[in-house]
């Protein structure tokens, strides 16, 4: 018996020992090959946007896992703008601030008034985003350069038809010039998305203008307006430029399936005829039953009186 035990014991020890040896080797191999491989690779994407004059830079960080991009959250990103060197004397050249990505891997930097003032003369921006010694991810750097562009709106109503004219201008050598032959979008803001209107592929004319009619039969929002949006989208050169305006608009009659007394309404909103029929039937029958119970008690009373 004892012998058998010993035998088994040794037999079990051998593989353990082998695993130990192998693991020693393998650690050595990895250590020699690449000491930083424990950090993950991620990629960064920068985009620039002006919405109703408010400028913002958006950073998106993703990581590729099994062929799918998944967001990288909770990553600190430093953002620089090289044009305004004197902005922050302590941290360094053009440092705008740092951002932390959210669970969708996104972080947005909005320009404050102070910033806008500092940059009022600048029309070409060079943004740089970097990450610095994050514990999980390797350092990254990404850069975009954008030219400033502007959109202006005019509205005009004639014979109950409202036409929107949007004019696109860009800065060239510090001067604002109209941008012809450029594709733009006219949209109306709705609950779940932007509804395009006007012809397909709206393109600016020589004055840099596009015009589109708002469909007259379109219902407005609850507050008797609709929100019209003009958008120019050229991520490479100008970023996304968007301008929106609420204009007065009519509302079409709302559908409310609950206004009438129906078979599918609440109990307290039952159809009147149904209520009348059931209630009167109940009163009739239960009234008779009450009378019968009264008769029953009459029998009892009769029983008490002496013969």
């Amino acid at each position: 018996m004892k012998k058998l035990f010993k035998y088994l014991y040794i037999k079990r020890l051998i593989p353990v020992f082998i695993i130990y040896l192998v693991s020693l080797f393998s650690i050595n191999i990895y250590a020699q090959n690449d000491s930083t491989s424990s950090k993950l690779q991620a990629s960064m994407n920068l985009s620039y946007k002006i919405t109703n004059g408010i400028k913002s830079v958006k950073v998106e960080v993703t990581r590729k896992v099994d062929g799918k991009f998944i967001p990288v959250e909770n990553l600190i990103v430093n953002l620089y703008l090289t044009e305004i060197k004197k902005y922050d004397p302590i941290v360094g050249d053009g440092w705008m601030g740092n951002l932390v990505t959210n669970e969708d891997g996104l972080a947005t930097f909005k320009f404050t008034d102070n910033f806008n003032k500092l940059m009022s003369k600048v029309h070409v921006f060079n943004f740089i985003a970097t990450t610095n010694e994050d514990l999980r991810y390797e350092d990254m750097q990404e850069e975009i350069t954008v030219n400033e562009a502007l959109i202006n709106f005019t509205f005009n109503t004639e014979d109950a038809v409202t036409t929107v004219v949007a004019k696109l201008t860009k800065f060239q050598d510090g001067a604002e010039v109209a941008s012809p032959e450029t594709e733009m979008k006219m949209l109306i803001k709705r609950t779940f998305g932007m509804l395009p209107f006007g012809e397909d592929g709206l393109t600016t004319d020589e004055n840099g203008e596009v015009s589109a009619e708002i469909p007259a039969d379109l219902p407005g929002n609850a507050n008797k307006t609709i929100t019209v949006v003009a958008r120019y989208d050229d991520e490479e050169n100008n970023g996304i430029i968007e301008i929106s305006k609420d204009i007065p608009w009519k509302i079409l009659p709302k559908v409310n399936p609950l206004t009438r007394r129906t078979l599918w309404s609440r109990g307290n909103n039952a159809p009147i005829p149904l209520v009348i029929v059931t209630v009167s039937l109940i009163i009739l029958i239960w009234g008779t039953i009450c009378y019968l119970v009264y008769l029953l008690f009459k029998i009892k009373r009769l029983g008490k009186t002496k013969k």
Partner: peptide, 17 residues
């Protein structure tokens, strides 16, 4: 998916009447 009172539906990418 959308709001019939707005006469608009959206499938995530596309928004249509």
């Amino acid at each position: 998916f959308g709001d019939a009172n707005e006469d608009t539906v959206c499938n995530g990418d596309e928004t249509v009447r």
